[in-house]
Design a protein around this nucleic acid. Structure first.
Length: 198
DNA sequence: TTGACGATAGTCT
DNA sequence: GACTATCGTCAAC
């Protein structure tokens, strides 16, 4: 049974719960007439009250405005001038919290993803990182602010469930600049899943 | 108007 | 392990 997650899933007050519950959910994209999908195996939470967040201290700019908007939208931004990173906006309006999608396990359209990534052989390089999965799924800056309840990018619950020791909780990657907040264990990943980023 | 800086990934040594 | 491509964003000038 494939069930598309509704706004209510994202419109909750605990971003850590949402980040952990997204493990096992399936991202589906229908872009350029091509359908691809993958199961989320790694996420990170970001909140306005910690320094790693783009919206730290409720800083509002043109870029961060979507984070303060309604839950259930995509926040896509350019990192290092090259990589597009996909986030899900959560919580109610004016509360800036998001979940970064860091890795997925390919489920549908693997050959399409390989072509987009320029890979000839299938391997874990395909989607094991935040910049890799967006390229594989066909997600670009034009998808910033798009609804996750629509028919371009959405998330389904296909019944995959992970709990307890199957879920790892560790510090986030690449946020050393966040000083004391860099050590917050806000990264969630599936234990022993080969598609988790290195 | 300018310059410093990334929530990374791929290449080279 | 080290190096760096590449560009939008943001704050300071």
């Amino acid at each position: 049974m494939d069930i598309k997650l509704a706004t209510a899933f994202y419109d909750r007050t605990d971003v850590l719960t949402i980040a952990s519950e997204l493990l096992g959910k399936v991202i589906v994209t229908q872009i350029d007439g091509e359908r691809t999908a993958g199961m989320i195996v790694e996420t990170e939470a970001y909140s306005y009250h910690e320094k790693a967040s783009h919206a730290y201290n409720n800083r509002r700019t043109a870029r961060t405005e979507v984070i303060f908007g309604e839950a259930g939208r995509a926040y896509v931004y350019l990192c290092y001038g090259i990589h597009k990173l996909l986030n899900f906006v959560t919580n109610k309006q004016e509360v800036a919290e998001v979940v970064l999608i860091r890795a997925i396990e390919p489920i549908e359209g693997t050959s399409i993803m390989m072509r987009r990534r320029g890979l000839k052989k299938e391997n874990h390089q395909l989607t094991s990182g935040p910049g890799k999965l967006t390229k594989a799924l066909g997600i670009d800056m034009m998808h910033n602010t798009i609804s996750l309840i629509g028919d371009v990018i959405w998330v389904e619950d296909r019944g995959f469930s992970f709990t307890g020791e199957q879920v790892m909780q560790t510090p986030r990657i690449g946020v050393d600049y966040a000083e004391e907040d860099a050590s917050l264990p806000w990264r969630f990943s599936l234990a022993n899943n080969p598609w988790v980023s290195k």
